[in-house]
Nucleic acid binder design. Structure first.
Lengths: 175, 175
DNA sequence: TGTTGAAATTAACCCGGGTTAAAACGCATG
DNA sequence: CATGCGTTTTAACCCGGGTTAATTTCAACA
């Protein structure tokens, strides 16, 4: 658990209320966050003001804008607390330096990135190959907890459809 | 360029004809491939036999099934040559060991995974937030070469629509 | 030059989900 | 208990893309 130690030593503990942002789309943010408690969501805001939810982030999860932290560009998404949350933030630069110096940390970061990559692959698969209805069934079967934590509105935006659309799907399945 | 050296030393050069597979969905494959020449595509086959293209892989690119190589599970996609191709394959295990031992290689693998993660994020964004028409325009503007390399059929399957749908979009835009 | 087969276009019909707006359902608060 | 506000449902209409099948285009080759 060298990585956790490193974050404990070098990270800043941040306490946020529901509705508070850690960063917003378009801003630069060089931190990687580890969630200690609470619930967050990462979302895109499209040109016409529509919200699309990238992911929900739960205690134990890591999150940060790779594009911003690594490539130094503006973040493509926003990160906001859905519930009061405590996270620890560590500058990506420090993490990167540490990984170059300490093989143990490098290994864990590697594992983390591989897990991250696999998760993204899964999401890509779902968005590319499955219908909205199939994505809904999958979410219901694999992450039922999420339905008790967020509104249906947000589930819909995560599935890539509107709340109205989701309501219809549920109705259709109830027959 | 320590990583390239490592692959040159430890990799196996493989020559394939157009149409040959490196691996198929459902199989186990522990290799990471670096493309020297040619053109490949990674694709999903859904239950009803529909093909969805995950990505095109060009010379210089790396590809492999993370799920299979790292987690030891069956690959979720197939990898096939669209043109005669030469790739070098290196077992993921060796790469992993090398990265634990050599910080230089670890650093490069880290960079690779970060770049990979960013690419996936971009794709997730496109599939989640953009319409098929917007995705088409984006591809046309950012990777025009691809249109000279593969059939429209494959462009469509990459965009997540049918060839017929793509033809309609082109028509619509031509006014 | 004509033939053949793959790729691309077009047309007709269908359907899932978007959009807008109205109704119904909570559930907290005074 | 009544009020009010956010969430969910329902309804009506629209539209993009799927599906199927016919047609056209084009390149390869005899």
């Amino acid at each position: 658990m060298k990585l956790d130690e490193f974050i404990a030593e070098n990270g800043t503990v941040i306490t946020k209320k529901a509705g508070d942002h850690l960063f917003r789309q378009g801003e630069h943010d060089q931190s990687i966050y580890k969630v200690k408690s609470g619930l967050l969501k990462a979302y895109y805001l499209s040109a016409d003001g529509k919200e699309n939810i990238k992911s929900f982030i739960m205690p134990g999860d890591n999150i940060g804008s790779l594009v911003s932290a690594w490539a130094g560009k503006a973040s493509t998404f926003s990160l906001v607390c859905l519930k009061p949350s405590i996270v620890s933030a560590v500058p990506f630069r420090k993490l990167n330096e540490a990984s170059r110096a300490d093989p143990g940390i490098a290994g864990e970061i590697l594992d983390f990135l591989l897990a991250f990559g696999m998760k993204k692959e899964m999401r890509e698969y779902e968005l590319l190959c499955l219908t909205a209805e199939e994505r809904y069934k999958r979410l219901r079967d694999t992450s039922p907890e999420i339905f008790t934590l967020v509104t249906q509105n947000e589930i819909a935006r995560y599935l890539g459809i509107t709340p109205v659309g989701l309501s219809r799907i549920k109705k259709r399945l109830a027959d």
